[in-house]
Design a protein around this nucleic acid. Sequence first.
DNA 1: GAGTGGTCTAGACCACGAG
DNA 2: TCGTGGTCTAGACCACTCA
Lengths: 243, 243
Amino acid sequence: MASRRHVIADDLRTQISSGRFKAGERLPSEAQLAARYAVSTPTLRNALALLQGEGVVEKVHGRGNFVRHPIRRITYFGGGHTPDAKTATDAALRMSVRTTHLPARGDLTALLRVSVSSPLTEFLCISHAGKSPHSLARIYVPRDLAPADDPNGYTSCKEVWARLVELRPPLAEVQERVNARFPTPREAATLRISSALPVLAVTRVATDATGRVVEAARLVLPSDRADALFTHHTMSGDRRTEG
Amino acid sequence: MASRRHVIADDLRTQISSGRFKAGERLPSEAQLAARYAVSTPTLRNALALLQGEGVVEKVHGRGNFVRHPIRRITYFGGGHTPDAKTATDAALRMSVRTTHLPARGDLTALLRVSVSSPLTEFLCISHAGKSPHSLARIYVPRDLAPADDPNGYTSCKEVWARLVELRPPLAEVQERVNARFPTPREAATLRISSALPVLAVTRVATDATGRVVEAARLVLPSDRADALFTHHTMSGDRRTEG
DNA sequence: GAGTGGTCTAGACCACGAG
DNA sequence: TCGTGGTCTAGACCACTCA
């Protein structure tokens, strides 16, 4: 009982992996493909949406559907690594930062465990690879732990993070909650992805030894270009409950 | 530039959160809602798909769309916890296990770092809450680390895991790769979810002190009912690269 | 302006669930 | 059998990209 879109997606996938369509190449237009498979455009688009979700195909509005270069995926490393350590592993990634000051409100108060209107600093980080954005991070820290405004502005993410780490106490715990969802229209526009492409949403909360939340972050990773990787080393004597 | 489905989804969401539609209640049929909002059925279904992705609405084929009971989400705990520890946190969860023996093939050989046709044992675990399935796990272990077949069969997951843990050396590292994708048709049927609902896919690889892979697992968590949570404790002197 | 994908329409037919 | 959701059709119109 395979639906039509799956049959078409399977056929295109094998044609791509067999080299019939090469990486970076543009596929025939959706209208042509629909005619070739004798289906309507919505059905063909559903098939392409499957391949897009697998990271095999990339849709670009107004230009066409393109075969993705294989495994140009970025990996988010969880477990205490900062974006700085993350980007260090992939030098090809550019990252832009925008700093804003704002009062705590809504669910941010619960995340950071601060009272309403408590002063916060937001870092809006967008990483790019080539011309298209790859991931989006909104990082919140209490104002007193954020670097003072630099009249020159911070040009690089690295610079901001170096100052941030200077200011704050060592982290004791990093907790990351991960789920899959669709992007908000705003996120889809910022990341230039289809709103039908699921994203990996990571909510990261870092606390110091006193239990104070020193950083909360909301990361949005498009599923077609990013994974998250969590590594846990079991120390001797630290065997978790396994029986 | 809010698309129609987002407007409708927003309206329904506020009606639900305001108590206009109560938890467990059935929404009007899609045809009725489409008429009320003066849109076509596909558009209304897109709006419902958004709410379904948020876990606000649950679709049941042949019966209707239902308002979900709030936050009946299960959490997958990453970082060295086994399913046993996971289920212990939520006693309401039933879990069924099916054991199969199979030779290593395809990407399983790479995951477990064994040669092709190397003997493996697969545990297919499906957790249920109430009558509907909640998550799916395929766990693979080398045959020599798997408990021998019990003529009585293992009735509970707990029993299987107790035997499994007896047999294997203590874990040294647990690595979990997480991404978001759409379920395969098979997964969608097993979990009784729509194939348009994204799932959280976790690939877990556990190695012992010698570097041998003692367990590989593929977990599928429907995004409307499950999160994954990773907690990392920074030991003193174990400050990760942060500068 | 030509060609592309993005969204939507107003139906059709099939598959599922319950009485 | 009936009402439900699941899938699909054959268009339409708008937004974006590029020459």
